[in-house]
Design a protein around this nucleic acid. Sequence first.
DNA 1: CTGAAAGCGCTAACAT
DNA 2: ATGTTAGCGCTTTCAG
Lengths: 345, 345
Amino acid sequence: MSEKFVTLSDIAKRLNYSTVTISKALRGHSDISHATTKLIRSVAEEMGYTPNFMARNLSARRSNTIGVVVPKIAHFFFGAIIESIYDYAFNHNYEIILTVSQEDAEREKKHIQTLLSMKVDGIIISITQETKDYEIFNVVRKRGVPLVFLDRVPDIPDISFVQVNDREGAFQAIEHAINLGYKNIAHFAGYSEINIGMERYLGFEEAMNKYKVPINKEWVFHGGFGEKYGYDSFMKLYRENNLPDLIFAVTYPVALGVYMAAREVNLNIPEDIDVICFGGAEVQKFLSPPLSCINQPTELLAEKSMEILIDNINNSESFVNKNIYLPTELILRGTCIKFNKKQII
Amino acid sequence: MSEKFVTLSDIAKRLNYSTVTISKALRGHSDISHATTKLIRSVAEEMGYTPNFMARNLSARRSNTIGVVVPKIAHFFFGAIIESIYDYAFNHNYEIILTVSQEDAEREKKHIQTLLSMKVDGIIISITQETKDYEIFNVVRKRGVPLVFLDRVPDIPDISFVQVNDREGAFQAIEHAINLGYKNIAHFAGYSEINIGMERYLGFEEAMNKYKVPINKEWVFHGGFGEKYGYDSFMKLYRENNLPDLIFAVTYPVALGVYMAAREVNLNIPEDIDVICFGGAEVQKFLSPPLSCINQPTELLAEKSMEILIDNINNSESFVNKNIYLPTELILRGTCIKFNKKQII
DNA sequence: CTGAAAGCGCTAACAT
DNA sequence: ATGTTAGCGCTTTCAG
């Protein structure tokens, strides 16, 4: 029923060579003469030979495979990141083993172990919201497997990471808002235990302090990075009749939650209450009103991570950790472009 | 520098057992007594043992790994599908090797070969827009590797697939529109070479014929499934001053392209021109106006595919191909809910 | 330039 | 209940 896979020895028998010669020829080893290489290759192709990945990697040093761990896939930011990682890998002849933690630290740990057991050459990871135990990263290090953190990075020394300049981006946005006249600014800040949550908060704080705008603690929320968190936070303020002029959402989904809540209670954006968020998505252009955001260079983030990781893989002895911060871009659309006159009165 | 990976024989030496005993104990083989199994496992854990995936799969029959090929990742539909596939796999103890064809048939073929060489137990695939050479699927079959087509399926006999009832879904939407009074209906139909394009078109045609609404050939476009195609098609009609009342977009991105074009030329949706599309996305709720759509049950699609594939893997002898059509759901939001009065005049 | 020998880490079949 | 033998398909010494 099922046709046998063609192996090196099949080709060897047919050509009366040893498997070693075939193996070398196929990999373009200089040992083999140009003529026989050519012959062997054409026969291999004709016979439909494909190397056995498992066997190859069991005996060879490297697998030419990179493991990736992300918290989510159906998500604008990570979707874009992953796609770029796959593109980069394809163009550089690497395979990708993608795993998804679903924001679950236990799952994340398991996936890292799986990647290790699959003998990936290196790992790129964006940790979960709740990752607190960093021991597993030490295990990776001890195994000598290069590791690059992307966007969500733990607070531990001697690591390589690529992230966006969250603080600077948040600062610019809030500074812009303040200059337009917004004073009552809330911040739905997500998890402050994780770098992106903390840094965005610090950028917010810095801008508020610089312009001596008081920070109202009741307007600073901590919780999550998803729609529900945006929705709930908004509703809480609404019920308390304590709404600000502008909400700075820590992520794009949080802003979406705000949109949902505002619509539900018949409040208009940006007339009654205004929103801006960290993180961009194409669809934001089509929202009503179009949502202003602090855009992240997803493709660059992915490329830089891969570049550093591959560099680390190829120079594991001399490599020194790299920490990269990429700049964001403030994109103004329908929200956060002018102060709402009603509030001035 | 890099700590050695702990192997079976390391444990064996420490415990004065053979590797076979260790191997069996770790896999819970009934050969080994309960007591020693427990002992061996605890020591293995203590030593930080992780099985070598490559070695295991090289000697064992199955890899407990499923290969997946999709045309895109940063895309609402495929993002959701992939996430569900990962979830299902995680809960059923399978690993996933995901590859992305980027709508490129060549790349697709390469990826399938890679998956084969990785000895995956089965493959789930959603083919590209342009896949015309189906020979590779025969290769997969000959190798005895179970294959399930998901959503985008080629027109070849004796295959398993899971898809949405595209024709029925399109029919319902157009029927609904006609009943509301829409007569001038355009269809941006994407690629009709592929099942989803063809079936959606046929559903459209069926509804139009049933209610004797003439189909204007100038309003039926073929091209792609992306934003650009929606934008370009709209613009062409706009320039020719030949706009319909309603545009039925073959995919959600195509509808987005229409939104973009309409806004650019200052036409209002749904007052001046109306839109409905095949395929749902959460964000559609937040569009202005909220976009009506024919929703696909992504989670079910993923689950069914996995279920069938795993069934096929486990019963490769007795298995018979399954063809599944899942029903869609018409979701009415801001568009396609009432006929535009201006047009009646 | 070519090949024989050894082994990567694991498991299946067959003893004991 | 435990171990021995053999081998998955490939690559890396090392001899010739």
